[in-house]
Design a protein around this nucleic acid. Structure first.
Lengths: 143, 143
DNA sequence: CCATGCTCATTAGCTAGGCTAAGTATCGTG
DNA sequence: CACGATACTTAGCCTAGCTAATGAGCATGG
């Protein structure tokens, strides 16, 4: 029972911490920059090399129509290219363009700047705690 | 330099972890339930007892017009009441209604259910790490 | 060999949540 | 008492989520 109670309290604490933290990071976004979601999708794409919309949606934990929108924005800006699947006409292959990779690196850097500065102020132990927490959250999110 | 590099990498890792984690938690929301933001605002209100919109906006790290919207939704549902400030005619006092408190407790519980179950699966050490990370994120968000 | 049913992606249409800029009412002070 | 500052709201915009429905292509069973 103690564990249950702890988990319950932790769930609340964690949610509150995350919502405030996200909003704070969001505020640090320069005008005209890539949004949170766009940057995350672009990152996944680059890491994976190439993905179908469905795969990307699963990876990003959103529904396919949502991913269509996000990819649409990225494509408009020439950062991502859609190419037809070689054998399956229904599917599409998404990949970052050269410009996508370049813009990504730039914006990623700018996006992280505020956060990195803040994190740099922490003690090494605190950073270690956050790194471990990030790993755990990824695992839980993965389900 | 090593610290800077670590902070930079951590910033990216943490962002990715948080965005996926948030989306996963968001998915667990029952239809018709309070949203993430609404629940967070209601929580702050209850903990504080009563707040002005400005105070609540600052606490939730959003701009005042955003808070107007969120509170509007809560008020529509009779969960929050606006009362005039006793001495300052410009200000408004926000407080959770009895129904707000009741509905909050119910929904909070439902909302946490999935997450609490997941967290309960972790080891005590992992939960401890998350708890510590939550505290650190709150501090960073606070600025 | 083709009809039927499944899967993939998109479109349409909705809601919430975030922002800035502008408007309105009130306060407080010179 | 006029005028600047403050508090909240309104208006208008965008992103990001969702579900439901559509259209195109695959695959399979008769």
């Amino acid at each position: 029972m103690t564990t249950e109670r702890t988990a319950d309290l932790l769930a609340k604490t964690l949610r509150d911490a995350i919502i405030r933290f996200s909003r704070r990071v969001r505020q640090a976004r320069p005008v005209g920059d890539l949004t949170f979601s766009q940057l995350s999708a672009l990152t996944s794409l680059q890491l994976a090399g190439a993905l179908t919309p469905r795969e990307l949606a699963d990876m990003e934990r959103v529904q396919p129509p949502t991913m269509t929108k996000i990819v649409g924005k990225l494509e408009e800006r020439g950062l991502v290219a859609r190419t037809p699947h070689p054998t399956d006409g229904r599917q599409v292959i998404l990949a970052a363009t050269d410009e996508g990779r370049a813009v990504y690196a730039l914006h990623e850097r700018a996006r992280n700047e505020w956060l990195a500065v803040e994190l740099d102020r922490l003690t090494p132990e605190e950073r270690e705690t956050l790194a471990r927490a990030a790993e755990i959250m990824q695992r839980v999110a993965r389900g």
